[in-house]
Design a protein around this nucleic acid. Sequence first.
DNA 1: ATATATTTTCAATAAATTTTGAAAATTCAA
DNA 2: TTGAATTTTCAAAATTTATTGAAAATATAT
Lengths: 168, 168
Amino acid sequence: MKLTDAKAQFISSWGAFGTHWGINRTMAQIHALLLISPDPITQDDIMEQLSISRGNVNMNTRDLIDWGLVERVLIPGERKEFFTAEKDIWKVATQIIKERKKRELDPMLKLLSQLEQIEGDKKDKDVKQFVDTIAGIRKFGGQADKVLDVMIKADENWFLGSLLKFFK
Amino acid sequence: MKLTDAKAQFISSWGAFGTHWGINRTMAQIHALLLISPDPITQDDIMEQLSISRGNVNMNTRDLIDWGLVERVLIPGERKEFFTAEKDIWKVATQIIKERKKRELDPMLKLLSQLEQIEGDKKDKDVKQFVDTIAGIRKFGGQADKVLDVMIKADENWFLGSLLKFFK
DNA sequence: ATATATTTTCAATAAATTTTGAAAATTCAA
DNA sequence: TTGAATTTTCAAAATTTATTGAAAATATAT
């Protein structure tokens, strides 16, 4: 297989993969393109390589920047803006976990603790099942939250850091 | 807050939450409804409680069954089919991990190992970045694969099982 | 066997999401 | 400043995805 084909296949698959993870297809494709580009590239490069409009590139690169996965690079002497992606996959994963935790897990846990304080007779079958379910999810979510915090902070901790070297 | 409101809010939020995880909104809502229902319920119950059509209920309950999160229950003397969801959140999470690994991670890893064997000069900057990126993702994915396998099998292992009791 | 209840399928429709592209805003050099 | 290059915005269009509902298939009781 040649580089051109392999690139195309990687970008396409990474895009499809992204949709399973709540990420928009184009955003994932732009990310894929940036991951395999050794040097920073411009909006026009992205438009051309992925055959998508300027507006689309603009919106999705902005989202990628919000996610902390991509950054703008200013190249001296160049008028245009350039974009580049973090290449260390561990950092990419950590960043995604951090963001999703903040955007999804934390708000859900907050909601669950509200729902747990429901008025009603605990003897009632429906009330009991509701409270038990909410409590179960909240407990599990709370543990997941802690585990993820440890992962996110692992790089800052020498012991965990060295433990994780085995995985890197 | 009263049970009725709390239920409605849980179902709605769980549905929205699901969309971030590659799961269809209605499927997640039906799952939520079943999680808080102490006894098995019918297609008609689901239709009524969520105000959705029969066909929609049918398709989504089937998907939930395919995911191994819901099962059909036959109640003696009843003509209709009943549905019930696994209530142990740890088992639910394990089952989701198992399915997503099979559906998403495993195929991606297979593709990546193909893409790594690209023809081309490793001295070329583009080739090098491509190979490095693919190798990095594959290595990370491979480790994730192992970690998830351990989690999935944890319940079958007395040592890990007792370790995990702390999280349950 | 026949009638009746129940479930399943799937083409048509509706809803949600993504993409476009041109106008407006911004940036920067001279 | 002015004007060209570049980026951003956003309403309209295109596309994708989800939902409906009625017909077909299946299951069950008499």
